[in-house]
Design a protein around this nucleic acid. Structure first.
Length: 697
DNA sequence: ATAGGGTTAG
């Protein structure tokens, strides 16, 4: 790399001369120029073989192994450099690709095109444009790469503009611009362009069928397909997959049956119109999507030949139906599971909560990409094992695999879970350095800052977002204000939100919590009522729990009980728990007994009713009763999980459990907590507060 | 060794 950097410095401002042959970039590499000129046919053929060996190696073993062979070849031949460059682009290693590109002793138009492609595939279309404008020469590939790149990045006007400016268009250019228009929802424009196409090939039909299907126009797609009647199996496959994707498995099957099977009589058709492995895979995928795992398996067993896609789709199906043993059984039968197979298994185990098994798969796989790391990190993050998630994240960084947006979102989620502002801010640094900051990343940052206690940073991130704020962004910031007790600001943001995006059920949970913590009982009540009425969102059990909490906490116990009694869904432990908590604060023994019995019924193993009842007795000095409850609890083998709180300060991480006095400053901390508790009690007249209990044992 | 259309993983 040092060598490449030096080369980069010497060549940065030199431009290639216009030529169809590779040119030396720097005058000091005259030896390679000379050898290039003198290359005999035998030498050329030797390098061709070496280069295809390099390409194979890169394909099979990844970049690390390729480097070795590359090192021996690189001084000789521009194709070698291009092979390596293409491999980096293929792996989306754009920074390394650029380093390589800058360090190349010579470049031809393929080198430039490959670099354009790299930027276009990683969404950095401005960088691609910058290079495109400075290219010493352009060919049709260059223009086509830019047109499809603009289309992919959503800059459809620029794509069309470039297409019109392009001197010599080929069929790929036309297909690319039609694809771009369809991918950006410009159906009419696309079809107009399509009708003007001077040349079409087999990809044209697939382009239109797929584009229409992706715009939800499945019937129009089918009309086009049948009208063209080219017997193009790829186009049929597109539609089989498209019907499958939206769950219309019968339509998918109908199309699938229209493709000649061609395997029994060996007839097929003259132009090769017969089912291929993709047809079968697409059909299997349709069944998998529709939950028809048995039908999928039947096809899988029936199909004449299977490829990696078939195996992986089938395994994905079992993973999705949570039949992980079946998935593992198929994994056993595969001759060579590939990276995707392992990733599927990892995500399957992780999603089922079995992160240990997920990690065993992770450790077994030979080559881990960013996706593998992301899958296992997200798995740990999702089950709340934030420390494990962060330690894998460090391992990933150390292993040299570049983190992407998915990685950093998960890492931010783990920091949020740990409430670790310090680590969160470090990940934020990586975000600004390493990835394009899109909406999901911004959302993760807002959540992280708010959960780590820095509402100011959360708000700053939210306000300075340059990408579109989606419903998750709004939910994140509203929930932040809710958790920090700023009910008015949460409600203000909620009204602003309603002007831009549709709230979801998650929004209402945050708003209800905000009202609860801010004492805005009436507003909360109205908000709950407006959910179904104005927004068409039926309250779920979580909303009922929040409403009961809101009413109960503010002393409206009968009203809360009325809500519980009238619920269209059975109240669960969160609802009864909220009611019980309220009974305790407002000392309503009678209702507490009802709630406690109900809670014990819906959650027999839970300790909450016992603990609360015990504390109620203890709170008014009924020690014998308190002891009785405790005994009953022990007899039934119910144990309270110790609750922990922690805070991260300059001095490190401080962890506390109830009644735990092991901290060196325990006495001072408890005294401060106590005085806070008193101050709040005086301020709010809220009876005794369940949240701070330095005296509980 | 580089461009457009088809099926799987975060």
């Amino acid at each position: 790399m040092i060598l490449l950097r030096r080369a980069e410095r010497s060549t940065r401002y030199l431009f290639l001369e216009r030529s169809s042959r590779a040119q030396p970039v720097s005058t000091c590499s005259s030896d390679s120029a000379a050898s290039e000129g003198a290359a005999s046919d035998e030498v050329d053929s030797f390098f061709r073989q070496q280069n295809s060996a390099l390409a194979r190696l890169l394909h099979l073993r990844g970049l690390q192994h390729g480097w070795r062979l590359f090192g021996e070849l690189r001084r000789r031949n521009v194709v070698t450099w291009n092979t390596m460059l293409a491999a980096h682009v293929h792996h989306r290693e754009i920074v390394r690709a650029r380093e390589l590109f800058d360090g190349m002793p010579r470049r031809d138009v393929v080198s430039w095109n490959t670099m354009l492609l790299g930027y276009s595939l990683t969404g950095q279309i401005e960088n691609a444009r910058h290079l495109f404008d400075r290219m010493p020469e352009r060919d049709t590939f260059s223009w086509n790469i830019m047109i499809s790149g603009y289309g992919r990045c959503g800059w459809i006007i620029d794509a069309v503009h470039l297409f019109e400016k392009m001197p010599v268009k080929n069929v790929v250019s036309w297909n690319a611009v039609v694809t771009g228009l369809l991918a950006n929802g410009e159906v009419d424009w696309a079809m107009e362009m399509w009708s003007k196409m001077p040349i079409r090939d087999s990809a044209t039909l697939s382009t239109v069928v797929s584009g229409l299907a992706r715009n939800g126009m499945l019937e129009a797609a089918e009309r086009h397909l049948l009208k063209a009647d080219e017997g193009d199996v790829d186009a049929y496959n597109t539609l089989v997959a498209a019907f499958g994707r939206v769950g219309r498995v019968d339509d998918a099957r109908r199309l699938f049956e229209m493709i000649p099977s061609g395997c029994r009589d060996g007839k097929g058709s003259a132009n090769g119109f017969q089912r291929n492995v993709v047809s079968w895979n697409s059909m299997i995928m349709g069944y998998v999507k529709a939950g028809g795992i048995r039908s999928a398996r039947r096809l899988f067993d029936e199909m004449p030949e299977r490829d990696r896609f078939s195996w992986n789709t089938m395994i994905a199906g079992y993973v999705q139906s949570q039949e992980l043993d079946e998935a593992a059984a198929l994994l056993q039968q595969m001759p060579e599971p590939d990276e995707r197979t392992w990733n599927l298994m990892i995500s399957g185990f992780a999603r089922s909560g079995d992160v240990e098994r997920a990690q065993r798969c992770f450790e077994r796989m030979p080559h881990r990409s960013a996706i593998s790391w992301n899958t296992i990190i997200a798995g740990y993050e999702r089950v709340g094992e934030y420390r494990a998630a962060m330690s894998l994240f460090s391992r990933m960084l150390a292993s040299g695999v570049a983190p992407d947006g998915h990685t950093l979102s998960s890492a931010l989620g783990a920091c949020a879970g740990l409430a670790s502002l310090r680590q969160g801010a470090q990940v934020h640094q990586l975000v600004t350095k390493r990835v394009a900051v899109d909406t999901p990343i911004n959302n993760a940052l807002v959540t992280m800052y708010s959960r780590c206690g820095s509402l100011t940073d959360a708000r700053r991130t939210f306000d300075s977002m340059t990408t579109r704020k989606d419903v998750v962004s709004w939910n994140a910031i509203i929930s932040g204000y809710a958790q920090h007790g700023h009910a008015e600001e949460a409600l203000r943001l909620f009204s602003r939100m309603e002007e831009e995006v549709r709230p979801t059920h998650i929004t209402f949970i945050s708003v209800l919590h905000a009202c609860c913590h801010g004492g805005l009982v009436e507003e909360g009540r109205q908000c709950f009522d407006s959910m179904a009425r104005d927004h068409g969102i039926d309250p779920r059990v979580e909303h009922y729990a929040a409403l009961v909490d809101l009413l109960g906490r503010h002393g409206r116990l009968e009203e809360a009980m009325g809500i519980v009694g009238g619920m269209p869904v059975p109240p669960d432990r969160t609802v009864w728990g909220a009611l019980l908590g309220a009974c305790r604060v407002h000392r309503n023994d009678e209702l507490a007994r009802i709630a406690m019995a109900a809670l014990a019924a819906v959650d027999p193993a839970g300790s909450a009713p016992y603990v609360l009842l015990c504390n109620m007795h203890a709170g008014v000095g009924r020690w014998a009763e308190a002891a009785e409850v405790r005994e009953a609890m022990e007899q039934q083998g119910i144990r309270k999980q110790a609750g922990y709180s922690w805070i991260e300060l300059q001095s490190g991480l401080h962890v506390f459990a109830a009644g735990d006095k092991s901290h060196p400053l325990a006495l001072e901390i408890l005294a401060t907590a106590d005085s806070c508790s008193r101050a709040i009690r005086d301020e709010t007249h809220a009876g005794d507060l369940p949240c701070i209990q330095p005296h509980s044992s």
